[in-house]
Amino acid sequence: MSNNIWRSWHTMKEESRRREELRAAALTGHLSDAQKQEFIQVAVTDPSISAELEELQSTMTRLDAADIKRSEEPVPSDLEARIINARTKDGPSAPERSGAGSASRARLAGTEDLEAAAHTLTAAFKDYPWTRHVIPTQEYELRLHRLQHLHLTQAEQHGIVVVTGAIEGVLALLPPDPPTPAPEVLEQILALHGDRIDRLTQTEGSPGAWRLETLGVRPESQGQGLATALLFFGLSAAATHGAQRVELETSDPRNVRLYERHGFTVTSSTEPLSAPPVWHMENRLPSSI
């Protein structure tokens, strides 16, 4: 074996080993800041690592749903193979899972996707505590759909909107200080919230922080790793636009656990007597990729 061939083989072996280490750390939620940056760098140049992680995360989600306990000890080196083998035997076949996982299922949305995306978010947030609190019950779903469409339009024009291939999941991010919506759009938002407009509050974001405006998956498509696909794609896209910090608010404790697995931490929380609880979270992204 020539020196050049040996060096190439050795480099490939080291890269493969490092990918396994990154996937294992991401799967357990124990990525350091340096590993987050390295993972995003790898994902941008080779999106298949996100697809591989999504496959593992999807299986772990299924285990959680079945209330199967897991150890917090380091991930065994053969865990990936065992999980993939088990999923292949008792889970949907590859074609039924839309083929290539998160890398192919998550993509940037265009204007033509916004109507379907609004329908998906309407289904996802139909029973969400905060939307139930701030939107009148009369024609609730129609109001919710219209509000989602208005906010998605703003995000698609000035930020980032990500959807899965068949638009079963949607994510929207806005950069710091986006333009104020046009007066006619603000009038529609006020009218749709009706007499509950005074319940609509939002904490002032940190200077320079991007904001994760929404993340929703249709109820029948939940538990398949789509949220993971959307988050990895969305955060990577934000990082390429210079985002160093992403903030969000959620009123569902299950979402808190989801976001914590993807690098977010709780910065504060409020539990008012007359409104749903709100957790404020942030994710400090690498400064460059």
Rank of each mutant, 00 (worst) to 15 (best):
H119R: 14
P207F: 06
W6M: 08
S50A: 15
P178G: 05
E282Q: 13
I40E: 00
I84D: 01
L22C: 08
P136F: 04
V246T: 07
V162W: 01
V217K: 09
A34P: 04
A118Y: 01
S8M: 09
S93T: 15
A123M: 12
I49A: 01
T137H: 11
E247A: 05
N85E: 12
S93P: 01
R254N: 12
L235W: 00
I160C: 04
R254F: 09
V246N: 07
P92I: 03
H10G: 02
P286G: 15
F233S: 06
T270I: 15
T228I: 01
A191F: 08
G242D: 06
L258M: 11
P136S: 05
E72I: 05
Q224W: 06
E21C: 00
D67A: 13
R105N: 14
E72A: 14
V246D: 06
G263A: 05
V246Q: 10
G110I: 03
F232I: 07
L212I: 03
A237W: 01
G225N: 06
V161N: 00
S93L: 10
D90C: 10
I167W: 00
N255C: 04
R146P: 01
T122H: 00
S287T: 13
P253V: 04
L171K: 01
Q35R: 02
I289K: 03
P76V: 07
A239L: 11
R19M: 02
D33G: 08
F125N: 05
E220M: 08
V134C: 06
L190D: 15
E54A: 14
H133A: 05
S104Y: 10
I289C: 08
F233A: 07
S236P: 01
S50V: 14
T270L: 10
W6R: 15
R107L: 09
P253I: 01
P76E: 06
S32D: 05
H193N: 13
A100L: 13
W9R: 13
L285Y: 03
S104I: 13
R87K: 11
S32K: 09
E96I: 02
L215N: 04
T122R: 11
N4H: 07
A103N: 08
D46T: 10
A65Q: 14
L27P: 02
E15G: 00
T111G: 14
L114A: 06
A237L: 08
L248V: 04
P176G: 02
E213A: 13
P175N: 09
V44C: 06
R261T: 08
N85M: 07
E187S: 11
H193E: 09
P207C: 08
R196W: 05
S48L: 10
A103I: 00
R105M: 13
Q35N: 02
Q57E: 11
L231F: 03
W6D: 14
I5P: 00
L190N: 12
